[in-house]
Simulated scan of single mutants.
Amino acid sequence: MHRFWEKVIKPLIIATRPRTIVEIGSLRGQVTYKLLDYCKHVGARCIAIDPVPQMDTELLAEYYGSSFQMIRKLSLEAIPAINQYDMILIDGDHNWYTVFHELKLVEQMAARTGQFPVVILHDTEWPYGRRDMYYFPESIPQKFRKPFATRGIEPGRSELLPLGGFNHMVSNALYEHGERNGVLTAVEDFIEGTSYDLRLYRLHSSNGLGIILEADSPAADVLPYILNTSGL
């Protein structure tokens, strides 16, 4: 996600001026720090969600004060407690079940508040656009969990490698493609089933970035220019 900051995410934030930003998947804070600098400057708030963040959250809370909130839970447990937000960045557990239900929770928030937020998702292309990955396999209901193994993957090959390969240390679905498999599939299934008139914008580099907007969102006027001039 951080590779898209300067040319896409930052310009989109400046154009839309969100007051509350939710970030799913903080990890080492490469994007979190940048979001917090914006929030502190304009008096906005960043709510970070990560069950095991790899950054000094106490120091961040001390420095950024009310601009920062850390929720150490899985996203599907944390999101329902957040009443309203203008933008959400989704870069957590890269599988169909999690992403689809994260988006359904966003939809429920929008129904309560009357505003569908700007949604930014990482990993909409290879390797996890069409393949599930599980950080915590036991958190996914069995009927939605693909057969998986802790083995690596490579472009152009559906089955997992016997040794080595990309992300060989995490739980990857045995095969690519098919129903309810991968981040992009979850996004497409959500958009097909929602009553909101949504548009999906995609960038294909750096594992892919997807941006979901309502068709009449003010951001829809500026986002095509941002994407076309990003060079990504």
Rank of each mutant, 00 (worst) to 15 (best):
L76T: 01
F100E: 02
F4P: 02
S26H: 00
V118Q: 05
T32Q: 06
R17M: 12
P53D: 10
D93N: 14
Q108V: 08
G43D: 14
A173D: 05
P162N: 12
A186M: 01
R45A: 05
V118A: 09
P11T: 06
T113I: 10
G43R: 11
E23I: 10
C39M: 05
K7R: 15
R151Q: 15
A81T: 12
E77C: 00
H101Y: 12
E77S: 11
G29M: 02
A78S: 05
I226N: 01
R199I: 15
R130C: 11
I21S: 04
F144N: 13
I14P: 03
I120Y: 02
H122W: 00
K40M: 10
L161G: 05
H2V: 10
I9E: 06
E102P: 02
V99C: 04
W5Q: 02
T150G: 03
L35A: 07
T57K: 12
D197C: 03
I21R: 01
E102R: 03
Y85C: 05
L105W: 02
L203K: 13
N83K: 14
I47H: 05
G165S: 03
F166Q: 09
I14W: 06
G156W: 04
L213E: 04
F148W: 13
N167R: 15
Q84L: 09
A44I: 10
C46R: 01
N83R: 14
Y134Q: 10
P18K: 12
L209S: 01
I82G: 03
H41V: 15
I49C: 10
R180C: 10
G193N: 14
L74S: 02
S230Q: 13
F166V: 08
T185C: 11
C46G: 00
L12T: 12
Y38W: 09
L203N: 06
E6S: 11
T113P: 11
